[in-house]
Design a protein around this nucleic acid. Structure first.
Lengths: 218, 218
DNA sequence: GCGACTTTCTATACATGTATAGAAAGTAAC
DNA sequence: GTTACTTTCTATACATGTATAGAAAGTCGC
């Protein structure tokens, strides 16, 4: 490995990531701006862009670090493939929910970070074990992933909406329901808010597993 | 209705929405900035903020207009409840995919616009018809919605990634796969890109319907 | 040591969403 | 009319991500 040419770097990708972690940990995710980060590592904002393509990629790398610490629990002993898929999906979602800025990243890529590949691996493996072809297993994983990403996004949007208590556009909609054209929704009416605040993630994954995997032998 | 007090408005919400539609139609979604919009209706940017809380709300209202034109196809004649759910979900997704800036809005709310309420109504009604309680039917709708939102987001992220052909972070990940810890993924290897470009939305909805609704009578 | 080349860093600039302060233009009370 | 009040609009300012141009600081061939 010969010495590199060019002006020697003052900062490294690692410096940036370390500082980013520190800022987020101490002051929360909204404090993480490129300018702030630059100050933190003692350089100018644009210097960061030689180590990182853009802020999205930075967040992706941060996610990677977080993912390395995400648990990869053993599947419950003696569980069938279906239960393994459910367990992996639930763990994956739980891990991601702990990352506060996850929503910005979910838009950026449809597969997770390198160090979280344990989850797809486990899901795909269990699906194959259940009798799917590898191709079908990949489909199954992607479907579960889309569901998971959508659920997390919606959940965090709902949380933000609760913070600033804007009259939620939605409540207005539900005031003026035309009971003739939309009888079901009108009947639900005021209960909608309560009903849609329930956590139905598990229910959804289980439904997907039931619908995607062949039924287990009796 | 007495005359209103205060300085009389120069512009109306309708003016704004009309101009916004025109800009998007003629120059695409990235041309729609608050400054541009202000120029278009002949006022200053900040004046818009008296008619619209922020850009997100503006997009939400735009979506509402689009949604009014989204088709609400008759369910296939003689179809069971399951088929009705699938048909509605597919139509909903198709309608939303036609809205180019849909991704910005999907983060903002977890129920769709007022004039697209036909879709949840149809899905919930079919689910009740299939034998679910109203509460379960709402759960089912929300689960389908999360899946749909996640799928659309991922799809549009993938499309953007193809435009600028950045080496996708993902491809790098798949180069350095540890075949011992991640045998399934390693085996898939180069086929991953091809496999994950397939459209599996239908498959997913059908699986959800199978998993959520009671089996139809034979 | 010197010029070419490469990599990293700095300075400056721009577009964007939006906060804030206050001016403008009307109605209502007297 | 004058004053108070309300609504809408204008001017200005700021933080943010990032583009662009070029300066700085090294290595390499000679």
């Amino acid at each position: 490995m010969p010495a590199r040419t060019g002006r020697p770097p003052k900062i490294s990708k690692t410096d940036i990531l370390t500082a980013a972690h520190r800022v987020i940990h101490e002051e929360g995710t909204q404090a993480l701006t490129m300018r702030r980060l630059a100050r933190e590592v003692g350089t100018t904002p644009m210097a960061l862009y030689h180590h990182v393509r853009d802020k999205d990629e930075l967040l992706l790398m941060l996610l990677d670090d977080y993912a390395a610490r995400m648990p990869s629990p053993e599947p419950p002993a003696g569980a069938g493939p279906g239960e393994r898929v459910v367990a992996a999906a639930v763990a994956m979602r739980e891990g991601l929910m702990g990352v506060p800025w996850i929503v910005e990243v979910l838009r950026a890529d449809d597969l997770m970070s390198a160090r979280a590949l344990w989850y797809p691996e486990e899901i795909i493996d269990a699906a194959v074990q259940a009798g799917l072809t590898p191709e079908e297993a990949v489909d199954a994983y992607r479907i579960i992933w889309h569901y998971t990403a959508g659920e997390i996004t919606a959940r965090s949007a709902a949380a933000r909406r609760r913070e600033d208590d804007r009259p939620t556009h939605r409540s207005q909609v539900f005031e003026n329901l035309d009971a003739t054209r939309l009888p079901r929704l009108a009947a639900l009416g005021p209960r909608w808010a309560e009903l849609t605040s329930r956590d139905t993630y598990d229910k959804g994954v289980r439904a997907l597993v039931r619908g995607l995997l062949p039924p287990p032998p009796p």
